[in-house]
Design a protein around this nucleic acid. Sequence first.
RNA 1: GGGGGCGUAGCUCAGUUGGUUAGAGCGCUGCCCUGUCACGGCAGAGGUCGCGGGUUCGAGUCCCGUCGCUCCCGCCA
Length: 435
Amino acid sequence: MKRTLIAELPGLISERVRLRGWVNALRDQKRVQFIVLRDETGLAQVVLAKGDPPSELNERLSALTVESAVTIVGTVAADERVNLGGLELKLEELEVDSLAEPEVPIAADSALDKRIDWRYLDLRRPDRKLIFEVQTTAEQAMREFWRKEQFIEIHTPKLMGSASESGAELFKAEYFDRTAYLAQSPQFYKQMAMAAGFGKVFEVGPVFRANPSFTSRHDTEFTSVDVEISWVDSHEDVMSFEERWLAHVLTTVKEAHGEQIAQSFDTALVVPELPFPRITLEDAKELLREAGHDAPPAGHDLDPPSERALSAIVSERHGNEFAFVTDYPTSVRPFYHMRYEDRPTVTKSFDLLWRGIELTTGAQREHRYDKLLAQADEKKVDVGPIQYYLDFFRFGAPPHGGFGFGLTRLLMQMLGQENVREVTFLYRGPHRLEP
RNA sequence: GGGGGCGUAGCUCAGUUGGUUAGAGCGCUGCCCUGUCACGGCAGAGGUCGCGGGUUCGAGUCCCGUCGCUCCCGCCA
């Protein structure tokens, strides 16, 4: 007998159906027994009258435990007494596929860390599963947009012989008789795709950061969304792609899940107006000071409190939750970011903030071999291990730019969550390698 | 790496100025309840108070150390 999903029950009154799912709740009374069954599409009540003495079926239902996996056959009946959709299943057959132990180790209000210990139980809650439905829709919308604009998907290696950028610390791995490093970014390889003439590329994949960061928005392994575009005139071309792309993603997610998100997470997903406000770093600091906030001195990046304050100000003045901050000084940017011809200490770079959190860092890249070498030298980058990268620019490289984008941070903001761990299937942090 | 907070029952927490057998709600076990739907009622089990040391007649409570969790900063997406 074919499996019926709970969501299909309203159209099947008086039919005999087979449901498979988990015991969400049990109410075992003197004369009547109820199971609230949960599958991936919803909840349904199952009812069985209790005989005197109880039938063998009654006894087996009494022995059930919450969260057991069961298969149930019964007849669908409309009954206005039932709060759950006004219908129920009259139980005829009960098969226990897997009996759950009587005490589930976590509850809905358990601490996040404890819930991660038992993540598969935590994820059984429909609200938690919604996170991954939204993620799936978001990624699909991204790909839709990329393909419409002739982007090519690449999969770059995660095992590397040297660092891909300075800054973030690297995990080491044994690699036969030498040391390999886990990729902290596909940066160099997506630039290789530019030198290869791929035009426009994207990658969605894992990156690894060995920073001992103990905050609600960092993890040591996360999914990075990377984009690189050839033949740009400046970083403005990259920003204008990113905002159109993001607006499409948010529109798609809102259409598909907006109501559920509002219901489950009490968050309204707002599709942003285009273009997103752009503000240079120095103007941003000026704006912050005018508004009575502290701002870091020249030559320094915004700190997290400044980013939150800036987002609030921009949101109030421009009605946009997104903001590009541009023109970072060379002191806080890697050597490969392109600089203005007339202002050699300022890079053609940007960050994208959404409601105070950094979603993206992007830039036009330096594609001229001699300038790239000079900038590496100035930044005291040891070019020995990355000569393969510098070589990309020796035989004709197009002007190009791109960005890296934190998928979990996007998801966190879309769902109004305060911690990336909440929206990561399995979080990895300095003290977390299991499950 | 620096700073703050927290660690008491399976889960979420309370525990006065240090004082005798350490509590609650939920969950669990048993019994009762003709339709429940956060079902209800009665009874019960369950704790070396994170760990180690110290102060004290006496420590869940005070001190030191240690481990774990958490948030902020740094680093970044």
